[in-house]
Design a binder for these strands. Sequence first.
DNA 1: TCAATTTTTACGGAAAACCGTAAATCCCAA
DNA 2: TTGGGATTTACGGTTTTCCGTAAAAATTGA
Lengths: 220, 220
Amino acid sequence: MIKKVLIAEDHESASISVQKTLAEIGCDQADYVYYCDDALIRIEKACQSNSSYDLLITDLYFEEDHRKQQISNGRNLIIAARAIQPDLKVLVFSAEGRSVVVEKLFGECDIDGYVRKARGDAKELMKAIHQIDNNQRYFPIQFTQELKQNNHEFTEYDMTIISLMVQGKRQKEISEYLRDNNITPSGLSSIEKRLNYIKDVFGFSTNEQLIAHCVKIGVV
Amino acid sequence: MIKKVLIAEDHESASISVQKTLAEIGCDQADYVYYCDDALIRIEKACQSNSSYDLLITDLYFEEDHRKQQISNGRNLIIAARAIQPDLKVLVFSAEGRSVVVEKLFGECDIDGYVRKARGDAKELMKAIHQIDNNQRYFPIQFTQELKQNNHEFTEYDMTIISLMVQGKRQKEISEYLRDNNITPSGLSSIEKRLNYIKDVFGFSTNEQLIAHCVKIGVV
DNA sequence: TCAATTTTTACGGAAAACCGTAAATCCCAA
DNA sequence: TTGGGATTTACGGTTTTCCGTAAAAATTGA
């Protein structure tokens, strides 16, 4: 049963809402912090005193300010928290709407639920918490539909090339980079071929169009 | 004295927080809606029954869903609302952080205050409401500093070119498009020159890098 | 092991982008 | 109207990308 919850959220207004939602479903042990570093300290202390948290509700993006932080975003907070307390349940509550990003959280960070800040998000939060309470994951419907229609799955290789292009590297330089880092294939022709293939899948005609799409959907 | 307030905000969680904040400062006449169209109807009806709102608190961006709306964003809502009730006070509450956008709201829409969704936004909301109550504007400090450091302001012309590139058009085709639409300069050289200038300002080396940046910051 | 297949690389011509310069055009004021 | 200055366009050479083909290398299967 989920009793003790930690809210990591820099927006005061959002934090207040989550607190209110938790209070409504009868959870009276809710702490909240505005910085990732503070969240980690709380988790650490709670573990040491044998009163660890059952659930972490966290945002993804935290704004930088005068207080310099070790952990700057929700993703890294999750990884650090799980290193301390592997069985900690994690529910991400963010405005992020790109399915690739959310999918990565489930795949790579093994989160237990995702609720998008949108219409009816408070009610959705309740549903998600109840579901996690029953040891189930909460994966929002909106993303399940969107997932399959993206015909092309970007490989690590693809993302490396595209990242380098975003950094302003020429294809020749990318070839050299791949060779130096023992990533194959590294030939200029292979890079050209791969880019042509991806563009073909999407029906794009220029690199500029491909880059725009990748940035939009959050591949880089 | 501000008594009757309307909250136009699609995020349920954000709306809840604003309601709670209003309740705390002793404002018990707060209505809330999730769609711009609903907001306008409320304002209309209130005016007709001689019980008009004192303040409109609205978000900027409203997500589209199954319910098709006439008014799709906060900016247009403000304009429409002021057409009905010119003396309506308006406080914008949004995550938008680009100073250019916020400045425009004060300049073109004559809003009374802006509070950014961020750390301490609930407290800032209170301050803003009190200030508006005293017939003063609330302009957040964070923007006053940032205004000058914007290295490059994208013109309509720039955005046209970049949009066409994002659509996969070659520079030659862009030149033809500009000529056909009587946009000057339309010469290929002028397009090249402009792109080089922008890249130079940012210290970029390739078009791909420029496109990535533009998509990221939301120029297109 | 060796031939067949696939993957990767090399190469070369064509198209596009890049970059400087010069010519043409536009615009404004005298 | 006209001359000067700024803007826009045209042009040519260079680099980069594009795209097809073929050689080289790696992988596979019997």
